[in-house]
Design a protein around this nucleic acid. Structure first.
Lengths: 240, 240
DNA sequence: TTTGTGATGTGATTTACATCACACTTCCTT
DNA sequence: AAGGAAGTGTGATGTAAATCACATCACAAA
């Protein structure tokens, strides 16, 4: 049982899977590698937004802090994910913070280098455009899920996205192979820790989810889908 | 006074302004023109997402309806705006509805034609990528504003975006040269008509806004900025 | 082994916002 | 000019979720 949990989850898919092998190689050729320790920041809001980041290994969260000290987690990126901004303005700055939450190895792409590459390789440009479209749609659907179905809907949507990102099938159950605190979940849906705790309690009591070695196990995915009116969108889009 | 209101607002900027004249011409060459009457739909959720739309004249709203009959307005596009999906999946479908809200003339671009064009023209590909980045950032910042600062914050953010989209300076005041009902505003921020009515009443009483010929006039923009912790981002990004 | 620290679980209370209900205004139409 | 439809304004009430305030638990460090 425990050893099953340690294995790489079958469904773990990186957003860079949009790219063909060749395109990803081209991108890798213009990266320079850096290492970042957990707790550091890749960028802060207000910093110039002129780089893309390829997470070779590790984890980075994109967050926003409010004046009252609350934190909102917009995205969680993992090994193999590509992220960052490519904006039309010279003086463009980030609106969010990028917090390194696990020791990471990161490939950095300068906007100028990327532009040259896209200019030269039409096929890469087309793939890149599709990757951007996918990322945008992920934001839009998350936006919808978090705005339209109350806090329980937001939580259920987030649990589904966690299944799509970290889920490992285990019979009819799905183990979310990623430890998450109630506070983390709360920051992902803009709720309080207490609310998340109560909602998770409700779901456990209704036998929708369970805990196994502190991992969340989803036992009734259709129930979660029903709460947030999930339309069963592609796994690659419906992620954290 | 009335005639001032009729003139095209100075700050009305279309999102296609990201493109150079030449690039926009290239895009226009692969469009086919269609007309759509107010009340019709350009696409419904579930329809194939394989086209871009250029609004030559008119207005289109991107909306999402919930099971309980509530409607959420994600975007409002106007003359000169480009919108649509370019997704990596063959079987990709829309998650939202596109409702034509004014009689419109629309240029339609097929995804395949766009791909060929981007392949051939590196400069257009780079501009297109920047346009996509800008649209994504607009979604992200709206997401943040609507999630983090309560309904009053969401309303203030929306009023600021309306100023950036339809605003006409009039001394130190900004006239939003677009008639909006309380219900429309409510659907833009995921609130009820009654809540919007009360919040607008509060703002009027505090002399932050006023009504002139049924147009909203913003008298104290800094106050609105303060409520939603607006960081004065570029006007091109902070739009409806 | 105790002490500290971060996380969970839960009750009581408050707050923000939705819902319901209805009066009033505007303006469109035939 | 009358009637109706769409929009506005506002009280009363209900409810979801935040806030506050602790108790408990797990586990690492001194």
């Amino acid at each position: 049982m425990t050893d099953t949990l340690q294995r790489k989850p079958v469904s773990q898919v990186a957003n860079s899977d949009c790219f063909t092998e060749e395109s990803l190689t081209k991108l890798k050729e213009i990266m320079y590698e850096m290492r970042a320790e957990a707790g550091n920041h890749l960028f802060w809001e207000g910093d110039a937004a002129d780089k893309l980041y390829f997470l070779k290994r590790g984890q980075v969260k994109i967050t926003k802090a409010s004046d009252e000290g609350k934190s909102f987690i917009l995205y969680v990126y993992n090994t193999g994910d590509l992220f960052g901004q490519v904006d039309p303005f010279q003086n463009s700055v980030h609106s969010f913070n990028a917090e390194v939450t696990e020791n990471s190895i990161i490939g950095v792409i300068q906007q100028k280098d990327l532009e040259v590459l896209l200019w030269q390789h039409g096929d890469l440009a087309v793939e890149f455009m599709k990757w951007m479209g996918l990322m945008h749609r992920m934001t839009q659907t998350k936006f919808r899920d978090l705005m339209m179905f109350g806090k329980p809907g937001a939580l259920c949507s987030t649990l589904i996205r966690l299944c799509n990102t970290y889920g490992k099938n285990h019979g009819s159950e799905i183990v979310i192979t990623k430890k998450l605190t109630n506070s983390e979940l709360a920051d992902m849906i803009g709720a309080t820790r207490e609310s998340v705790n109560r909602m998770l309690g409700d779901l456990k009591r209704a036998n929708i989810i369970a805990m196994e070695n502190n991992y969340i196990v989803v036992k009734d995915l259709p129930y979660l889908r029903d709460i947030c009116q999930c339309e069963n969108c592609p796994v690659d889009m419906c992620r954290i």
